[in-house]
Each structure stands twice: as C-alpha cells, then as structure tokens.
C-alpha cells in the first residue's frame, strides 16, 4: 500500500511537471488543441470551423479538435473560453457573435477578456426579399419603407444577433421603421419563401442558392466592399451611408495566453486560410477569405464593438 502511494505520488509529480512544461511556448503544441465552436453541428459556422481546423492543423503540428458548445447565443462557448486556461490549448472559433453576446449583457464580461488572434474572413449579411417582391432595388425598397413605416417585416436570427442589428443600423441611418421578427436561424429562409415576412437579414451563404435559383433577390450587402460573388449588389457605402457590418469569423483565445503561443496560432491559421482546399470550400460557401493578423484584427473589432454597444444601448436591448 505504502509503495503504491509512493509510486502514484511520483507519477503525479512527473505528470504535473509535464503539464507545467507544456505551458512553455517552446514545446507548444505538445498535445491536441481544442477549438470551441459556438453552434451545434451542421451549420455554416460549424462546417467552416471544421474545415479551417483541418487545414490549419497541418501547420500547427498537432490535431485541432472541434468541440461544439452551442447555446445562449454563443454565451456558453464564450464562458467556457473565458474560463479556460490561457495556455493555447483551448481556442475559440468566434464571429460577430462575440460582440453581440457580450454587449447584450447575458455574460458578465466584455469582448476584451479575449485576445483576438486572427480573422480568417467574413460573409456579407444582405437584406434579401422574395424574387416576386415589388422592389427591384434597394432604393425602391427604401422608398416603400419610408411611405409605410411599421409595415415591412424583417426576419432575423434572434433578438440582439448581428442579423437583428444590421436592419437596426439601416433603420437608424435612413429614418425607417421595420417590424423585427426573431425567426431564428432555422426558419429564416422558409419564412421568407413562404411569405410570412417580406424580407430577411441573413448571412450570404444561406441565401445564395435561392438567389441563383431565382427564388430570392438580395437588395443590399452592407459590407465594406462589394461582394465578389455578387458584384452587382450595392453596399450601403455606395449610397453614402456609413453602415458596414459583416459576419466575420476568426480565432480568439483567453487573454494572458503567452505571446509566443499566440504567434504560433496566428501563423497556423494564416497558412490554413491560404490552403487551396479551404479556398475552394470558402468560394463555394460565399465566404470571403480576408486574413487579418492580431493587431489588424483588434483594430477591426474595436470600433465595431463600440458601434454595437451604442445601438444596443439606444434600442434598450442592453440588460442593466
């Protein structure tokens, strides 16, 4: 009995040393890295995440294991990421949701508890209507909405989500009033096609197929530049409005992760995003690869966060 205790104590010490050792950047990564995904299996966030994990792990030298942590508008995953050890073995596959979920106030922290390591790319978030809708352009749509306030129903993925905030930004900038319907991600497209709502705000990949088939049309994509897949669709900037909102996707880690480790992760995902396999996948899914390293990414996130916080405050979405 005595001997067994001694042995297990010795083993414990060795194992503990191993854990300590693995925290040193030089050895990183010494074991598989967990990548938390804020949604369940099957959606575009999940498939995109699993794809980049697959291409990035070639360059990281360790497996990247995708772990689904769905729920609470991303709050569950963000909490898990926040509570994880800042050792680079737990990373998060974040999106604009990282800003909306922290600003709505259901989790007790802000986005700055994370280091945003790398933006892989983004999808446009267009306003889409049915193909037989009476509006053929964004101007016609706006003109109608101006004359008929509180008439057009716009579906979104949930109150406080990025697809809810986009129409709110448009409302504010143009002095319009919509009825916002929190249809949820699953029922957005069927509700539009079934005629329950007049318009939806939706990530481009989810509606691209319908547009190509002539069932729906996109009126405006409020990205910074015109979408390469839809060069004819204007941005909000084209009309002179300062509304830029994109569904970005990238990697965040808990603050305090050693710089050297962060640099390794950044490098792996940079190369992963340039992998032909990922490029092809992204193209088919209307995802625009546009890599940003840590500094650039943080500069990109900060003003967007301020804007989102402001709008949430104004519309009373923010919890006190």
């Amino acid at each position: 009995m005595m001997r067994r205790t001694t042995i297990s104590a010795a083993l414990a010490i060795i194992a503990a040393l191993g854990i300590l050792g693995s925290a040193f950047a030089a050895d990183y990564p010494a074991k598989p890295v967990q990548m938390l995904i804020p949604f369940g299996a099957g959606g575009s966030a999940d498939s995109m995440g699993r794809m980049i994990a697959k291409t990035a792990e070639k360059h990281l030298g360790q497996n990247i294991v995708a772990v689904n942590k769905p729920g609470a508008g991303g709050g569950i995953m963000l909490t898990a990421l926040h509570e994880a050890k800042p050792d680079g073995y737990t990373i998060g596959w974040g999106s604009t949701g990282i800003l909306t979920a922290t600003n709505i106030g259901n989790v007790p922290f802000k986005h700055d508890v994370f280091t945003h390591v790398a933006r892989v790319g983004f999808s446009g978030m267009p306003i889409a209507v049915r193909a037989d809708a009476p509006w053929n352009s964004f101007e016609e749509f706006v003109a109608y909405a101006k004359e008929n306030p509180n008439k057009i129903k716009i579906g979104n993925a949930g109150t406080g989500s990025a697809t809810h905030l986009t129409p709110i930004f448009i409302e504010k900038e143009l002095g319009l009033q919509f009825i916002h319907v929190p249809l949820g991600a699953k029922r957005r497209v069927p509700s539009l096609l079934g005629g329950e709502v007049e318009a939806i705000c939706v990530p481009l990949p989810e509606v691209a197929g319908q547009v190509q088939a002539g069932k729906a049309k996109v009126l405006v994509i409020p990205s910074a530049e015109r979408d390469p897949g839809f060069p004819d669709v204007p941005t909000m900037k084209d009309f002179g409005y300062d509304v830029v909102i994109e569904l970005f996707r990238g990697i965040s880690v808990p603050k305090g992760t050693p710089d050297a480790i962060v640099a390794k992760i950044e490098e792996a995902f940079k190369k992963g995003a340039q992998d032909p396999e990922f490029i092809e996948f992204a193209k088919k899914n209307s995802f625009n690869i546009s890599f940003m390293g840590m500094d650039e990414f943080n500069n990109y996130v900060e003003p967007m966060d301020t804007k989102i916080a402001m709008v949430m405050e104004e519309t009373g979405l923010k919890k006190n």
Binding site: S47, K186, A208, N285
Partner: peptide, 21 residues
C-alpha cells in the same frame, strides 16, 4: 431537421449547390 442540415453541409463540401436548382 438538424440531420438534413448536416446532409446539406455534406452537399456543399462536395461542391454541389443545394437549392431549387
């Protein structure tokens, strides 16, 4: 349903565009 959502994902991975076309 959620399972056919994954099947759709598989279609996209195969380079087929799901949708009416």
């Amino acid at each position: 349903d959620p399972i056919t959502a994954i099947l759709l994902g598989a279609l996209m991975i195969q380079g087929l565009t799901p949708g009416p076309l």
